[in-house]
Write a protein that binds this DNA or RNA. Structure first.
Length: 423
RNA sequence: AGAGAGGUGUCCGAGUGGUUUAAGGAGCACGCUUGGAAAGCGUGUAUACGGCAACGUAUCGGGGGUUCGAAUCCCUUCCUCUCUGCCA
């Protein structure tokens, strides 16, 4: 959530930056300031009147104690009059505050200065490419054929149990999921991240705090009986650990990692993108999350990008890092780097990680603050990234490590799997 | 799921309608004291909004109500603990 005071003091800058994110209704900025003016005025009148009521009530107490009933009664009449005036003021205030909230949550985060202009994924900037394009055997197949051939994942039975997009992992396929999860968590904790295992459902307040509500309401599964949402990423529960807190400066940086299944309705997805493991409704992911001092978030973002890059290198996958353009970035993010791995069998890049700096956008919503050296309260910055999302890594390894005889494994995974080959 | 007990500041904890302007204690910070430290003494120590400021307003889990006045009474909701039930 953006802060009204920031919009007030940087109106033109904010509009310019919102335009980079292709936010259509720039007049909303002026509107929000006007509503806030109204709010301030109402509050001033309300506070004045309430102050009179409070003072009089105290006086009445004094009169009652001394037995001066007449004076007390006279004052009571005054108070009754003021309270009558107070009522409409209170109503207006509630109304204006709701309106302000309703408008301000519509603003996406402002883009970082490094964010390239552009609207479509084609306009994302390739920052780095690494690794080798794998040489596949002549009869190479895509992962959706390989997993069938070796009975690693069964989509049909998953669909019978639940619906399409809920894969059923079997045998070595299931074990491989577990092994990847463990390897990723170990890799993250070795770098200083603390491991969390969070709830997989969250309440509306948590979903709001990280920006899923109200923006992505339709993308989450909603258990209406209890009003819980199935998490679309571990980012939601883990970032919310620090909702409504005032931290000490020395607590920062907070580094968390968490495994979770992720549930996404993916309403509106279609076409070849959704084949096999490329896009599913339930998948496993290991996430890294940091809450840091605002001065450090740029630096930390680079560290997180380097961390994920090292992880991909260790898996021997060809990858590229994209800096997303304004039009392709998420709602709450100030800057995002996407990681893609190359699938030689599909001859396309698959997104496996997205690392973002949210700056104070989430923490302001969440009221996650810290007390700085001068005793002032500041909003921390939050960042997160996948490290890593499993299905496409699974797909890429299965495809890129296929041999005439089966599927090999990256060296780092062999001790975890207890074998040199997956199959 | 049923019955009961609770939810007060960083923490413990008092407080059942009116100097509560939330007692008291602990912790923390600063100062005094000291050769240095501890102890002791003193001072300070929540957040949000409005205001240049003085200051005002709100907040005792959340929401609503009664009252001139609510931490305190009423309703509602969430959470924690104990017991019972069910259960991996």
């Amino acid at each position: 959530m953006l802060q009204v005071n920031f919009l007030r003091q940087n109106t033109e800058l904010a509009k310019k930056k919102l335009a980079i994110k292709h936010f259509a209704n720039l007049n909303l900025v002026d509107e929000v300031i006007a509503i806030d003016d109204q709010r301030k005025q109402l509050q001033a009148s309300f506070d004045d009147l309430q102050s009179k009521v409070n003072a009089a009530s105290k006086e009445i107490g004094g009169f009652m104690a001394k037995g001066e009933k007449d004076k007390a009664e006279a004052l009571k009449n005054d108070v009754a009059e003021w309270k009558k005036q107070l009522e409409p003021l209170k109503e207006q205030m509630t109304e204006v505050e709701a309106k302000l909230q309703q408008v301000i949550v519509q603003f996406p985060n402002l883009p970082h200065d490094l964010v390239p202009l552009g609207k479509t994924p084609e306009e994302n900037e390739v920052v780095r490419v690494g690794g080798e394009t794998p040489k596949l055997p002549a009869n190479a197949e895509a992962h959706w054929d390989l997993i069938k051939k070796y009975n690693l994942v069964d989509f049909e039975t998953g669909a019978k149990i639940t619906g399409s997009g809920f894969p059923l992992y079997i045998g070595k396929g299931a074990k491989f999921q577990r092994v990847l999860t463990q390897y990723f968590l170990d890799f993250n904790t070795a770098a200083g991240y603390t491991e969390y295992l969070p709830p997989f459902m969250v309440n509306a307040a948590s979903a709001f705090a990280t920006g899923q509500l109200p923006d992505k309401e339709g993308q989450m599964y909603h258990a209406t009986e209890d009003d819980f949402y199935l998490i679309p990423t571990a980012e939601v529960p883990v970032t919310n650990v620090f909702r409504d807190t005032v931290l000490k400066e020395s607590d920062l940086p907070l580094q968390m990692t968490a495994y979770s299944p992720c549930f996404r309705r993916e309403a509106g997805s279609f076409g070849k993108d959704v084949r096999g493991l490329n896009r599913v409704h339930q998948f496993e992911k290991v996430e890294i999350i940091q809450i840091v001092h605002p001065d450090k978030s740029d630096e930390v973002l680079n560290e997180m990008v380097a961390h994920v890059e090292k992880l991909l290198i260790s898996l021997g996958l060809q990858y590229r890092i994209l800096r997303l353009c304004g039009g392709d970035m998420g709602f709450a993010s100030a800057i995002t780097y996407d990681f893609e791995v190359y699938s030689a069998a599909q001859e396309r890049w698959l997104e496996v990680s997205s690392v973002s700096n949210f700056q104070a956008y989430q923490t302001y919503r969440m009221k996650c603050r810290f007390k700085d050296a001068d005793g002032k309260i500041q909003f921390a910055h939050s960042l997160n990234g996948s490290s890593l999302a499993l299905p496409r890594i699974f797909a890429a390894i299965v495809e890129n490590y296929q041999t005439e005889a089966g599927i090999a494994l990256p060296k780092v995974l062999q001790p975890y799997f207890g074998a040199e080959n997956l199959v």
